[in-house]
Simulated scan of single mutants.
Amino acid sequence: MDTLAQRLKYLLDTQGVSQNALAKMIGVTQASIGKIIRGETLEPKKIFEIATALNADLEWLKTGQGNYEPEPISPVSSEPDENHTYRIDQLDVQAAANLDGMINPDFPDIIRSIWFSDDGVRKMLNRHNTQGISIIQVPTDSMVPTIYPKDLVFIDTRIKTFSTDGIYVFLLNDRLYIKRLQMLPTGVIQATSDNKNYQPFEITEELFDTALIVGKFIQVMSIDMRDL
């Protein structure tokens, strides 16, 4: 495929995209696409938009050099770049999932930051941005199989009150917990571990009024930071 016209026609044919559909995708007329296909337009102004719409490598589309498929972008990175612009900080706090909790230093310091691509935020966190999201690690096994020790746990730190049943990170009597909280008909909140080897415990309304909600569980991921 020696010409731009041939390469564009190849992309349209293999992906089943019509000239009219491509025109609508990039905001031009079908006639403009037709001129490229016929070889009348050799340097289209919207070549970048065409490559993006057809998931093609820009340099390949322009010159024929390299592969037509772009290099895949990793959803996460240890450093920011043009593809990884969404930052989430890992906090220096280990939420205890066992019954006794864990005494923590002043909450929190930042251990490291992880940078996400736009696609990574959408697919991995089901979000459009990372506002209010932080990462912690859980050192024990009592939230297994939902959370395994050393998993990265993503929490929404904008949630500071108990509203609906779910997994929360909270400070109680100067100890930090991550538990599944459920409001019982009696008004007492039950804190439950997903690992059935750990017994649930109840928190009275009066005692829970003294608790500090750090955030609510969003997602858990097993990301090996050595690979970043």
Rank of each mutant, 00 (worst) to 15 (best):
F48E: 10
I50H: 00
I50K: 00
I50E: 00
I50Q: 01
I50F: 03
T52A: 13
T52K: 09
A53F: 10
A53Q: 02
A53M: 08
L54C: 05
N55A: 10
A56L: 06
A56H: 00
D57G: 05
D57I: 01
D57S: 05
D57H: 06
L58S: 03
W60H: 05
L61H: 05
T63K: 07
G64S: 07
G64D: 08
G66E: 06
N67Y: 11
E69K: 15
P70M: 06
E71G: 06
I73P: 01
I73N: 04
I73L: 09
S74C: 10
S74Q: 11
P75D: 04
P75M: 08
P75T: 03
V76F: 14
S77A: 10
S77C: 09
S78V: 15
S78K: 14
P80D: 08
D81R: 09
D81N: 15
E82A: 15
N83E: 09
N83K: 10
T85P: 11
T85W: 13
Y86A: 06
R87Y: 12
R87L: 15
I88C: 04
D89S: 14
D89P: 10
D89N: 13
D89C: 13
L91W: 01
D92Q: 07
D92H: 05
V93H: 02
V93I: 14
V93T: 08
V93Q: 00
V93K: 00
Q94E: 07
A95F: 00
A95Y: 02
A96N: 12
A96P: 11
A97C: 13
A97T: 08
N98G: 09
N98T: 09
L99T: 14
L99E: 14
G101N: 04
M102L: 15
M102F: 09
M102H: 11
M102V: 10
I103W: 07
